[in-house]
Design a protein around this nucleic acid. Structure first.
Length: 894
RNA sequence: GGGCGUAUAGCUCAGCGGGAGAGCGCCUCGUUGACAUCGAGGAGGUCCCUGGUUCAAUCCCAGGUACGCCCA
């Protein structure tokens, strides 16, 4: 017996274990089947499951389960990335609690007791990773994700590290990776460079300080510069004005004396100075501003770095300022300038300030040596592949975003001043000459060749950006650079499922690296971009706002299937998913509904019958529900294949709840409780078969509930839905006659119920029904389904072609007048009003159609079937109108 | 400043060149042997505005307004 209600907490673990025990998730390397590959977007090893992951992985799981049922050999490749900065942060914090800090050549901070070196630190990270890393992958199991867990990979694995090494060395030797001294985005908290993409611009309230710089040799003359960052003035090496700016024309070529420092700096003419902005003159600090850096290069200016790695002022500035934090320095400099009478004014100013996306501190443009990838070169084939349609974005408009970024791509800074990550495979000779190699021995060989003798080498201490290794995911996880079977079989992948926020970080970089290293073959033919999950008000979920919904809590509360179905139903293309708990509750109710339908079948002895043949059904209601099912399958199939997941969900919801539960089971009741043994047997088998087939269609979205019911009411323990075939229904199962007839019966019952309700007929009261003007066809329909109509519309008797009794309520169904003699309960005024309202609506309709059909242009130009349809509608409306008219007259004469 | 998107019922959103839809919410009624996590019925719309194309526009095009997101 099925339990009274569906209990996801009891079912989910059990079914997941059955799948794993049956090895249902693993890629089979089955050459008789077509492969289907999805590469999971590897979450951070430090991460935990949030709503975005839940959506992302629900979609992937739907695709994967669907394709498995289609008979494909499916690989869903799971894993995590090593999340350089985030992981190092986590472990450093842990160490900090033990009083341990990393030995970076600085004295111990107050309260700390121990330094540890790089090797020991990395050991600690691995230990952390083994103990508590990758919890998110466990959480994905709660969601029902059917990843091939045996193939789980980690970007720091040996094999993947091998791939990183090979890619780095190869690109270096091809000249596509190089070392350069440029301004980088420096994170003063983590002491590392970060890439442009890891910088967030935040709008902030600031000030615009107007400083006066004295002109050399012109006593009492000043040039005023405006700045948002006074602390950088100590590194100024020029003042720039616009070449056409009349105010300053005579000053170009002269020098200013930098206050507080006393340095003599040139006044240069450069387009960068905007005459409209501030005073029109701008201080130039080439070592601390990206724009100034360019100006500096154009005018060959000195680049003076005034900060250390903490963004404190270094020894290159006057003694009074040395060691000051950048924000303290700002205050002091402003005060000192004011004291010298050189502060002209201070304006409030709103501006964008760059922040590290992980450290949340202001980023400092900082002059350092870093490793770069020539992304512009690698982008060329990656752009072409999308232009030529080798990879298609769904929805299509994201291709524009991809192009926009790829066509303006900047050199990619890939080195990070961290310990956790893939160490840059570069060694330096005594004179700083660099040797890039797969290992130290190879580097030593290269060095010996270069110097003519063996020398001592020092390895570059930097590590690579985590995304550098993630970019290789589509092939490194399959064993590249080895030529593995997996690589041959499962590359290229089919579809990548991800959020738009990751197009630049990951999609673009996978495209670049895959095309370069996999013989120009794209890593996936489709990129499905889904929306962000927001709260019910459309705001981004964030801890600080406190509007975060935790998928694990929701699974706990409503079951994984309800969460999955909700996300699926809301995942319309190109729209954000606005999630409210009430939605999940609603789909939890859907689970309950299905469960109860199964219980109903069980109670009525509707048992699974392996030999059941739906084509042999003789009862019209059974042929009808089979027909409806057969028409639902292609809707679901096409929706999934076209990535219109919400439509798949909707089609299933509608079929199961509205068609099967609301109507079919009601239609089946008289048969199930009736005396006709053959009809009863057929109905029992049909009811169960149709439910089971619907569960198969639903399985990719709701795997747990469907598998549970299949086990309990289907083929039992020996069979698994997850590895069963997707149902296919013969065209011949669609039965137009049954659809038309039962559609008509549904309408008839609906109309009678509506009239009863409007007339306030007590729900229990059985009433008489007179049907007038019925065609032979309609009479036959009523004859065939009299029992259903009587039960469901609560009708006592049905008679034909009778005079209309006093005080009857009338309604029209096609050519039929439905007459309900309700003299005792009728309210004449109310009924009159009801009829008039209905006639008004019809009148509008008739006028519209009349006008259209008397338009010669319409008759001449519109397609024939459209014209015919409009004619038919007009005739129908007029017929109904006539009948309502006579009903109204009869009422008035009463 | 550049790019992308959105505007349809109270809310959240589907949809579509030819009869305005769903879920939730709301109102009325209901203990009919699956289900009150339910059933039956109902109310509720200037499909943002203005023009254009078309026999026909909520849908296509142009402009406008408002809002959102990404990039600088």
């Amino acid at each position: 017996m099925l339990d009274k209600t569906y209990r996801p907490d009891e079912v989910e673990d059990r079914q997941y274990s059955r799948w794993e025990a049956a090895d249902a998730f693993s890629a089979k390397f089955d050459a008789t089947k077509e492969p289907f590959t999805i590469m999971i977007p590897p979450p951070n090893v430090t991460g935990s499951l949030h709503m975005g992951h839940a959506l992302n992985n629900t979609i992937q799981d739907i695709l994967v389960r669907y394709q498995r049922m289609q008979g494909k050999d499916v690989l869903w490749q799971p894993g995590t990335d090593h999340a350089g900065i985030a992981t190092q942060m986590v472990v450093e914090r842990q160490l900090g609690e033990e009083g341990i800090e990393l030995d970076r050549g600085l004295p111990l901070a107050l309260g700390n007791t121990k330094h540890i070196g790089r090797e020991e630190f990395i050991e600690r990270v691995w230990k952390w990773r083994d103990q508590s890393g990758g919890t998110i992958l466990k959480q994905l199991r709660r969601l029902g994700a059917s990843c091939d867990w045996q193939r789980e990979r980690f970007t720091m694995d040996e094999g993947l590290s091998e791939a990183v090494l090979k890619v780095f060395v190869t690109l270096y030797r091809e000249g596509l990776i190089y070392r350069d001294k440029r301004l980088v985005n420096w994170d003063p908290r983590f002491h590392t460079a970060i890439s442009d993409l890891e910088v967030e611009q935040k709008e902030m309230n600031g000030h615009l300080w107007h400083f006066r710089y004295p002109i050399e040799g012109e006593e009492g003359r000043f040039i005023t510069v405006a700045t948002t960052r006074p602390e950088t003035m100590l590194g100024d090496t020029a003042v720039a004005v616009h070449p056409d700016d009349e105010r300053y024309k005579d000053l170009v070529g002269k020098h200013a004396i930098l206050p507080l420092v006393g340095r003599r700096i040139p006044i240069v003419a450069d387009d960068y100075a905007d005459p409209e902005q501030g005073s029109g003159a701008v201080k130039i600090t080439p070592a601390h501003d990206f724009n100034d850096f360019e100006v500096g290069k154009r005018h060959d200016l000195e680049m003076i770095n005034v900060f250390d790695r903490d963004a404190r002022l270094n020894d290159g500035v006057p003694e009074a300022y040395r060691g000051l934090d950048r924000f303290d320095a700002r205050k002091k400099i402003v005060a000192d300038m004011e004291a010298e009478g050189l502060l002209e004014k201070v304006d409030d100013h709103r501006h964008m300030v760059p922040h590290g996306d992980r450290s949340h501190v202001a980023i400092e443009p900082y002059l350092t040596d870093q490793w770069y990838v020539n992304a512009a070169e690698l982008a060329k084939p990656a752009i072409a592949a999308v232009e030529q349609g080798e990879t298609v974005f769904v929805p299509k408009q994201w291709e524009k975003t991809y192009y926009e970024w790829m066509r303006n791509i900047q050199p990619w800074c890939i080195s990070r001043q961290l310990w956790w990550g893939h160490q840059v495979p570069a060694w330096y000779g005594p004179d700083g000459e660099v040797f890039v190699a797969h290992d130290e021995a190879e580097a030593a060989g290269l060095a010996e060749q270069h110097y003519g003798k063996a020398v001592e080498l020092t390895r570059d201490s930097d590590v690579l950006d985590t995304w550098f290794s993630s970019a290789l995911w589509p092939f490194s996880t399959l064993g590249w650079p080895e030529e593995t079977e997996a690589l041959k079989r499962y590359y290229p992948g089919d579809v990548l499922v991800t959020g738009f926020d990751i197009i630049f970080f990951w999609v673009a970089r996978m495209m670049m690296s895959s095309l370069h290293f996999m013989d120009g073959k794209v890593p996936f033919h489709t990129v499905y971009i889904h929306a962000l999950v927001r709260d019910e008000k459309g705001q981004k979920m964030s801890k600080s706002k406190g509007n975060v919904l935790d998928p694990l809590d929701l699974i706990e509360k409503f079951g994984a299937d309800a969460v999955r179905f909700t996300l699926t139903a809301l995942a319309a293309q190109g729209r954000d998913v606005k999630l409210a708990e009430s939605r999940i509750e609603g789909y939890r109710n859907f689970c309950t509904k299905i469960w109860n339908a199964a219980r109903f079948n069980e109670m009525n002895e509707c048992r699974y019958d392996a030999d059941f043949d739906p084509a042999a059904n003789s009862q019209r209601v059974n042929r009808w529900i089979v027909s409806q099912l057969a028409q639902t399958e292609p809707k679901v199939r096409r929706a999934i294949e076209d990535y219109r997941f919400n439509e798949a969900a909707q089609a299933l919801y509608q079929f199961i709840w509205n068609t099967y539960c609301d109507w079919y089971l009601e239609f089946a009741k008289p048969l199930l409780q009736g005396e006709d043994a053959a009809a009863k047997a057929e109905t029992r088998a049909s009811a169960q078969w149709v439910l089971h087939q619907a569960l198969f269609l639903l399985h990719p979205i709701m795997p747990f509930l469907t598998e549970e019911l299949w086990q309990q009411t289907g083929e039992g323990d020996s069979s698994l839905m997850i590895t069963s075939a997707w149902p296919v229904f013969a065209e011949s199962l669609t039965d137009a006659e049954a659809d038309a007839t039962l559609g008509w019966v549904v309408r008839m019952i609906g109309q009678i119920r509506a009239v009863r309700s409007e007339m306030n007929v007590p729900p229990g009261a059985r009433i008489a029904l007179i049907v007038n003007d019925a065609s032979a066809g309609s009479k036959a329909r009523i004859g065939d389904h009299e029992a259903l109509i009587k039960t469901l519309a609560r009708v006592e008797t049905i008679t034909f072609d009778q005079p209309v009794p006093q005080g009857s309520v009338q309604d029209v169904l096609d050519e039929c007048s439905l007459v309900l003699p309700l003299a005792e309960v009728i309210d004449l005024d109310q009924e009159q009003a009801r009829l008039k309202k209905e006639m008004d609506k019809l009148k509008g309709e008739i006028t519209k159609l009349d006008k259209k059909l008397s338009n010669e242009q319409f008759l001449a130009k519109a397609p024939e079937d459209v014209v015919a349809e409009q004619r038919e509608r007009l005739a129908d409306s007029q017929q109904t109108m006539t009948k309502l008219q006579s009903a109204l007259e009869r009422l008035a004469s009463a």
